[in-house]
Every structure is written in C-alpha cells, then in structure tokens.
Design a protein around this nucleic acid. Structure first.
Lengths: 109, 109
DNA sequence: TGGACATATATGGATAAGCAGATATATTAA
DNA sequence: TTAATATATCTGCTTATCCATATATGTCCA
C-alpha cells in the first residue's frame, strides 16, 4: 500500500482534514456554523473566545476547505462548506458515546 | 452554549477522537484493521514503519477507544472497536475529494 | 473629494505545551 | 534464552494562545 508519494499525499491531506477537527473550539465553530452562517464577531460572542483565537481557527478551517468566507461590507460571513462534515462529527460522537458506555459497563459489572 | 465543564469535557473528548485520526500512519492502521485484525508485527510489515512507532500509534488509538487489543500468547491482535470509524473517515475523504475538485475547477475555469 | 476616525477581521512575534520519530531498554510469554 | 510488544528518553517540529498591530471597509464632516 501507500508506496507512491501521491497516495501518501492523499493520506496526509486526509489527516489534515482530521486534524482540523482535532480542537474543541473548532468543533464548536463547525457546529455553530451548521445552524447558520455567522460573522467572526458573532462566533467570538457565542463561543466566548478572543477574536484573534477565533480568526486563527477560522483560517485553519478555511485553508482545509471546511468553511468558506464571504465578505459582506465590513463583516465577513463564514459558512460550512460541506454539511457532511457534521455527519462525520456526529458519527464520531456516537462512537465516543458508545465507547464511554462500554467503559462504564466495565466498571459497574 | 458549552458553559458547563461537563459539556466542555465532552467537546474535548470529541476533539481527542478526531486528533487520533489526525495522522497518516494512524489512518493507515485503521483502514488496515478494517480489513481484519492484525498483530503488531503484521502492521509493522504492512505499513513499513518501525515497531516502536506502530506501538505508540496503537497506544493512542487504544486509549481513545478506537481499537482493541487482545493478547494471543506471544502476540497481540489489534482490531477495530467500531466500524463506524471507517464510515466517518470515508465521509471525510469524500469531503476532501470534493474540496480538491472544487479548487481544481477554480483553476481551470 | 479627501481626511480622520471607528469597526471588523487578520496576522506577526513570543511563549509554552504537545506530539512524532529514533534508539535503547523493559516487559511478557513460550 | 528468544520472540513479540511496550515504554522511556531525547530531539525537533508543530500548534495554541496572548498581546500588539496591521489591513480593510465604512462613516462623518469640512
């Protein structure tokens, strides 16, 4: 498998998408955008993080194609590029839930 | 949202699962295990990585509940804990594919 | 028209924490 | 002891956050 550098590059890009999801703040941003586009300031208010922090996270999500930016005069509206990102996050959340339940059973039984 | 530390902790665990996927070698391990359980040495041979490297990646996947270890005498068989992990990875791969296609169109058009 | 200023967003630099790989070594079972 | 797997330690690289500042757009007003 993965002998060619092209295939390695695909796996790297795949990992890059996953690492874009590997931060609680970015997960919150994505779920927030799933309910509708937001400006940077709306996200700052909603998620209670500093403006530079939100902007940096948005940059990462933007570079990896997960969100799109759209300037509307003074503000910039961010939106989810692909709703399947939420599907994937939900699936992983379900995996997490069952994993925690399994561990809990190991303790109680 | 996410005011309580419990909810923050869930988001952290969610991010931890995602960060387990955020490495090309671990993605290869997961796809490999999706086709059947393997021992550590089989993965080392198959993925052409060093044994300590594979073991460390397996530890990360194990701690986050994505794979299970099962000692069989001298060897340890690793298997996928939940096939939905592959569903999520496939979904993200599809998102990646479309994202790359979109960028390609931007260039050609 | 053209500043001067205000608001919204992005970025640069520094610091600190986390993570991947390599080598060497410890553990476990036969 | 040997084979299989796990871990410890070190090194270098990536990343998150903070603070300060830069950029971009819009408004007010002479």
């Amino acid at each position: 498998m993965q002998k060619t550098s092209l295939s390695q590059e695909i796996h790297q890009l795949h990992a890059d998408i996953c690492s874009a999801l590997a931060d609680p703040t970015r997960i919150l941003i994505l779920y927030s955008l799933a309910e509708g586009s937001s400006t940077v300031n709306e996200l700052v208010t909603h998620l209670e993080a500093s403006q530079p922090t939100i902007s940096r996270h948005l940059k990462i999500l933007r570079e990896r194609g997960l969100v799109s930016a759209n300037r509307q005069g003074q503000t910039v509206e961010y939106s989810l590029t692909d709703p399947r990102i939420i599907d994937a996050l939900d699936t992983l959340r379900a995996v997490l839930r069952d994993s925690l339940a399994r561990r809990a059973n190991l303790i109680t039984s």
